[in-house]
Amino acid sequence: MYTAGIDIGSSNIKAALWDGFSFEVWSQPTGWEISETSETVIQVLLDRSSLKMEDLHQVVATGYGRKMCRFAGRSVTEITCHAAGAFHLVKGAETVLDIGGQDVKVITLDHDGKVTDFLMNDKCAAGTGRFISNMAVLLGYDLKDFSDIPPETEIQTISSMCTVFAESEVISLLSKGVPKESIALGLLDSIASRAAGMVLRIADRGPVVLTGGPALNRKLGSLISKHLGRPVLTSQLAQFSGAIGAALIAAKEQMDVSKKGGGPMIIMGF
């Protein structure tokens, strides 16, 4: 039995194909043609497994564009999907911190992976993936290298969390000759401190599972861990956790999902 989950986020569309044992994943920038890109993303996965759309027993869509997906059987909110995905990727996850392209969510789970509480940031993009990518561009970093900050780097505190204000602050710091590594560290630290504050509002103990694109940034995970004084864990598939959760929810509807784990756990800091 095959099921798929598609997570239509503000920056990227992620999809996961689940055969009951393992996942195939694929992602692409969302762009402006949401429906078309969604179809392309799922088609890549189908082609890779030599499957057709009809072979999928169920498709669940999630993410802010979930209602735009024409081939999904139903839609489930990203809170429920991220929780299901993170619980599968990191067994026993109790607190999930998802930093997405336009929002930050904290989700608490019970021992069965059921959502018990959640918190989302407000309307603006402060401290989200969008903030990180804007700042990386400003400092001339490739997004994947944004965590390559030498260990002895002195931190330059950044006081603005607003993407627009932070940009002018960074420009003025650069013009004062502050090294870009120090600024990068300061930016990541300000996001980490804000995210840690959100975690503390609903979950005051235990490890935190970091998901979403920014989870690929190792430095960010270790900074969050430092602010919380608690372990921060992630998985290689962290940015697909919403899509994976959606595929699992789709499968669960069809039959009881097998209790197989995801990829190896990566400890980001403690």
Binding site: V76, I79, T80
Partner: peptide
């Protein structure tokens, strides 16, 4: 919609 949806799913 996302917040209420997640709350009701919960």
């Amino acid at each position: 919609a996302t917040r209420f949806g997640a709350f009701i799913e919960m």
